[in-house]
Design a protein around this nucleic acid. Sequence first.
DNA 1: CGATTGTCGTTTGTCGACAATTTCGCTTGA
DNA 2: TCAAGCGAAATTGTCGACAAACGACAATCG
Lengths: 234, 234
Amino acid sequence: MSSKPEPLFQPLARDALSQQIARMLTDAIVSGKLKPGDRVAESVIAREFGVSRAPVREAARLLESTGLLVSHANRGFFVRTIDAEDLDSLYELRLCIEREAAARVVREGKVAGIIDRLRAQIEDMVGMSEENQLILQIGVDLQFHRLIVESSGNKRFVAAFDKLASEIQACTAMIETVFDEPGLVARNHYLIIDALLSGDQDEARAALDYHIGVARETVVGRFRKLEAEEAAKR
Amino acid sequence: MSSKPEPLFQPLARDALSQQIARMLTDAIVSGKLKPGDRVAESVIAREFGVSRAPVREAARLLESTGLLVSHANRGFFVRTIDAEDLDSLYELRLCIEREAAARVVREGKVAGIIDRLRAQIEDMVGMSEENQLILQIGVDLQFHRLIVESSGNKRFVAAFDKLASEIQACTAMIETVFDEPGLVARNHYLIIDALLSGDQDEARAALDYHIGVARETVVGRFRKLEAEEAAKR
DNA sequence: CGATTGTCGTTTGTCGACAATTTCGCTTGA
DNA sequence: TCAAGCGAAATTGTCGACAAACGACAATCG
């Protein structure tokens, strides 16, 4: 017999049901299958998955802590509605974290270790952009930024970023085709790479100020427009 | 009859068991009755409160999302252990948020509206410091900073700050008598007020850089020392 | 006809029980 | 003596059930 038998099967996903359900729900929200304001009734979800309400409840509480769901006492869970102002706050916080993370990456000379992966992710983005895979592109985009945050070495930055990212992803996915020119946003990430490579902390900060500022204006602006249309409708 | 009937009763506090339990547990942790690494078994807590495990479980999940507890699959909840490096990350994130919040408070001219409350809180701190009510003083200290964050108008800042604050409170409470001179730390807050009143964003940022920097060095330094002692012991 | 009250269905909050998993003391064998 | 293995006890993950709370609509009263 082989001393190290090639594993015939993957260990099957045995994390708690609640975790699997949380993932499913997250996907449904960030991909827009569940829309802001939609009710997420424990009993309904439980029936659909064929499980009891307990794990669903836990999954919901988990998503509540990440901000994707909100709960009203005795009335259950709803997909978080988010207004332009709130989204703007979100971007402001994201900016705080990401610029300092980038500064730290530069300060501690960790750019070289991630530069290849960053480049690869930009390529991925460009590709997806050309195929109009907007939602996937947003995912990779956030991965790119996450990688910077991650290699700052500050675990709290990462945790906070992740929390924001899922919400930003959900919001950005809501507004189809935000961006004018295919691949433009993707390629703009090269400016960040340049700034990181410059070795100047302030330049790194400025690059992110600019980059996130553009995204912020675009997405928030779009949101305000949607809100205005919505308000005019009634 | 009065057109707008003066409400005769306050809505009575009827929050769920889980919320009450969460509060109790939080108190126990930040006051140091539960120490980092301690096991928090659902069944034990449930027995003590005389309730079933469900609300305890939910309370625990709530505290997990605030970072006070951690859960290991199939092994339950434990009071979060925190090392000096992690605490340092915590302070770094806190600094990011708070300095930008302060800058925004200055930028939007909201200083006047809170200055009285800020002063009152410093007085409270001084009083508690003189009575050696360290834990209470820490609470008011964080309230002071929270007030600044809150009046930045950025709800995300507040949410993130709250999450950090509970952990910082727990950690600071662990190390008795961190501070040399009674009332010194409390009175140092006047420097922040001065900076806010100066109307200069950068000055506000600098004041918080300094203030939080001192706290960071003190608390983290103390933590490192504790860790070293702990390591030497074995 | 409008406002208040009663009722009903649905959903959450909580419970006690069972199955699955981990932990720990004990035995066993080298 | 000590390590590995086994089994009982304790603990978590999940379940189905019940009671309380909520929202909506019908019934009642002015």
